[in-house]
Design a protein around this nucleic acid. Sequence first.
DNA 1: TATCAGTAAATCGCAAGCTAATCATGGAGG
DNA 2: CCTCCATGATTAGCTTGCGATTTACTGATA
Lengths: 148, 148
Amino acid sequence: MDPQTPRDQFPFANARVARRWRKLLDERLKDLGVTQARWFTMVCLQRGGGGLTQRELAHLMTIENPTLVRLLDSLEEQGLIERRPCKRDRRARLLYLTHADERFMSDLNERANVLREEMLKGIENTDLEVALRVFERVMENSANLKNS
Amino acid sequence: MDPQTPRDQFPFANARVARRWRKLLDERLKDLGVTQARWFTMVCLQRGGGGLTQRELAHLMTIENPTLVRLLDSLEEQGLIERRPCKRDRRARLLYLTHADERFMSDLNERANVLREEMLKGIENTDLEVALRVFERVMENSANLKNS
DNA sequence: TATCAGTAAATCGCAAGCTAATCATGGAGG
DNA sequence: CCTCCATGATTAGCTTGCGATTTACTGATA
């Protein structure tokens, strides 16, 4: 069998970390009725500024529209976001965080920050920057593939 | 809003890459009836040497047992693995790749290798090593958490 | 030997990723 | 104006991650 090279290991190790992050964050947000994915949705909506369409938000999150639809369904049901009709295009719907949840968002963000720092403890910023550059390059490379 | 620091971005960027890897590999293995997760299962079984129990394989893959059970169900149905009874412990089952699929495995591995190299094109080994060290440290850090 | 805690696997149900297909609306060209 | 393709959102259905529970067996101890 081939020896394990850094290149071999990369995709698996990467996926493992992603699973761990999701699992631990889900655990810590559970009592607030929020999951990692729902929180991420709110973060992106906040960052995008409100008034985004679903397609725009999905693009920001780099997920597909049907995945977002379900996340929004649950967030809307919890009263954490609103879908308002768009006057310029009756197909589209504009997304807003409900203003009731500023406190709530701070709490979520705080918990996520704490977890993140626990997971990244002892890791240098310079190393994280290298990792981020690797991620970025992977995304660039894979953007041009699509087919075999 | 806070500026985006490397630490902030890390979990999202990491997750994005993991989704991309899975999606593209699923695409390229689809015509062989195999998914990224099923292939990974076979790779780990091959690497572990056959005769592993399900618990041992799940540990190798860093996934939970119920997740593995379903993957094995589908692989068994496709005739790619076997679950044999264990004589020493009648609760356990020992896992083996069927020998019919050596060719098949080579094909899968080859496609995965090609995709991996396409995605990692232009990235230095030294940078990948840094990224792997980061991953490893994250896993160590998070192993000791469990609860808030 | 009988009991009983522990362990391997399986089952169930939820979450969140995806594709394909559907529906309504928009917009361009005949 | 009508037709027809494009596009935003949704729905349906698959996969694979998870935790909780169940089932069958093991092994230690009373």
